[in-house]
Design a protein around this nucleic acid. Structure first.
Lengths: 337, 337
DNA sequence: TTGTACGCGTTATCAA
DNA sequence: TTGATAACGCGTACAA
């Protein structure tokens, strides 16, 4: 067994409190005579003392652990976020507990309860639940909580991209390319980001076909087989509310003669090498990560200074095929601006 | 404050031990009179009792938490592994603590110590350290430990792909395509997987150019600028020891007239849509995840039944461009087999 | 400057 | 079938 404070106290002919003060008390350590302090440290070193963090946490009510609850860390969007969040937290002395909700309300609630029971200090969550109430009945009121990506009414500590802004810049880009009619491939409408993106798109273009399903590659295939194929020659763009959906779509479209533009939220890997014109509205992932870490740290320090929701801007990125297409049409039509 | 056993004991006119037995003792609960059991359960329900898992862990010396230590969860390979591991662990009642070592030996050691101090039950690690000794001086001897992806001499509990097999099937595929001379892009040679892959490749082909660097996209660019450009017309393939490296390479090669084959370990997203012929040697990620979870669970149950290293087979996958190329050369040369 | 004693919430031992 | 009581290892008032 690993040595404890008692062992060191015995070894060094002092009491546990002195040992504790030397080894863990920051300011307390100075109020101890240089001599005993050294004796204690020497003994600790020699015995290979490691504090039992469980016992400490039980006593101090702080675990220095934050939980990140996402739908699936295999999703590159969340994987990048998770990586950056873990790094930032580690820099501040916190560890990360990772939870996959798998877009399942039950699992989400289970995890929320578990996290509370484990004495986790704070929680960063990409929620499935849509109301403050749903969350607060699984997690104590005072638990530091940051909502990531899908804001919830009544919770101030949240970090997300501005869905309207990111939808509109995508629409602007499509507009500029002369798009009027689109096919729309949507993720689950109970998820606020997907829903809002759809709404904006529908308000700005003529939607000739629309398909909804889970945010996976397979849904893209489905859409084509069931609804999109027939309108492919009538629309100028296919828009997908996230990159997984788009991946399925792009797969299918590679065989089409004169493919329409694909508009998509978040990144498509290697999109620059595809011959399909693609325009992405990309969230600022590092800023999202940094945002929610600073938020959670603020809440953890309990310096009760007010926390403001953070709303980030996205930016549009196009691939070469898109740029070529744009250049061509501009040349043909009028003087390029 | 959340209610404790004491509160329920007071409320129900019994002792903490009875309450504990009712609420957490599995078999113990039956040795309690139906009546008091119900009283206790009712009270627990009414007061909204949640066990304090920290206190329990301190007492039982089990946290039901496993740590996963990888270089970077943003790497899709680890992200998929992480997701599957988390799910499997959750099914067995364990939570996951996620640690990024960032390919940094210091951080790795720090995390190993931290994990031990936190009372984590077990550890799945993609190690940077190369000897059993290095690891055991940071983590207690008896800590359940599974080595993932990069086997270490003397540690039986490990799960990985057979590097020789996966390298050789890649070579076989290249052979079949008539490849004799290659350019080789390697990840860090102190990482055993990269090193072994290089060795096999070098033993089977004529390596006209070789570049080494961190396993990132940028290294691919570097290689081209510094060494590869001049031999591009002399080699029939460029081989990369992982997918990040390959991504950089593929980016650069899209401009080349008659691109050589790209050989790569692990998946390249959307590779089917690229006009460059690509052949991948793909690890069985679900099997890797399942393997290390069953291993760790076996160690956690302490049923001292012997644990065997798991070595998995990879399989070769080619994209359409590769297949077209192969078909063409077969037609031209001789009767297709 | 140092030591004593208690509490954190639970489980486990030993009597009753 | 139950209840005191002692751990688990640590931090911290309070006293000396």
């Amino acid at each position: 067994m690993s040595p404890t404070l008692v062992d060191i106290a015995r070894e060094t002919h002092t009491s546990v409190s002195t040992v504790s003060r030397v080894l863990s008390g920051g300011a307390m350590a100075n109020r101890i005579s240089k001599e005993t302090r050294q004796r204690v440290q020497e003994a600790a070193q020699r015995l290979g003392y490691r504090p039992n963090l469980l016992a400490r946490s039980l006593r101090t009510r702080r675990t220095y652990t934050v939980a990140l609850l996402v739908s699936d860390i295999a999703n590159p969007f969340f994987a990048q976020l998770g990586s950056l969040i873990e790094r930032a937290l580690a820099r501040h002395g916190y560890s990360l507990m990772l939870c996959n909700s798998a877009e399942d309300v039950e699992k989400e609630a289970d995890y929320l309860r578990l996290v509370a029971a484990k004495g986790i200090d704070g929680l960063i969550v990409v929620p499935l639940a849509r109301t403050r109430k749903q969350i607060l009945q699984a997690v104590p009121e005072k638990m530091p909580l940051v909502i990531l990506d899908r804001p919830i009414e009544g919770i101030a500590s949240s970090v997300a991209s501005d869905q309207d802004q990111m939808s509109n810049i995508l629409c602007d880009a499509l507009d500029q390319a002369g798009v009027k009619k689109i096919a729309l491939l949507c993720g689950p409408q109970h998820i606020v980001t997907h829903r809002r993106r759809c709404e904006v798109l529908a308000s700005r273009f003529d939607v000739l076909a629309r398909h909804e399903g889970p945010a996976q590659k397979a849904t893209g295939r489905e859409a084509f087989e069931q609804k999109f194929a027939s309108v492919m020659d009538k629309v100028q763009a296919v828009v997908c509310t996230n990159n997984f959906l788009a991946q399925g779509v792009v797969d299918l479209m590679s065989d089409i003669e004169n493919p329409p533009i694909v508009g998509v939220f978040d990144e498509i890997t290697m999109f620059d090498l595809l011959r399909i014109p693609i325009v992405c509205s990309m969230q600022d992932i590092p800023a999202l990560a940094e945002g929610c870490v600073t938020q959670i740290l603020k809440l953890l320090e309990r310096t009760s200074e007010p926390v403001q929701p953070i709303l980030l801007e996205a930016r549009v990125v196009t691939n070469r095929a898109f740029q070529r297409m744009l250049a061509k049409s501009n040349n043909g039509a009028s003087v390029a601006k």
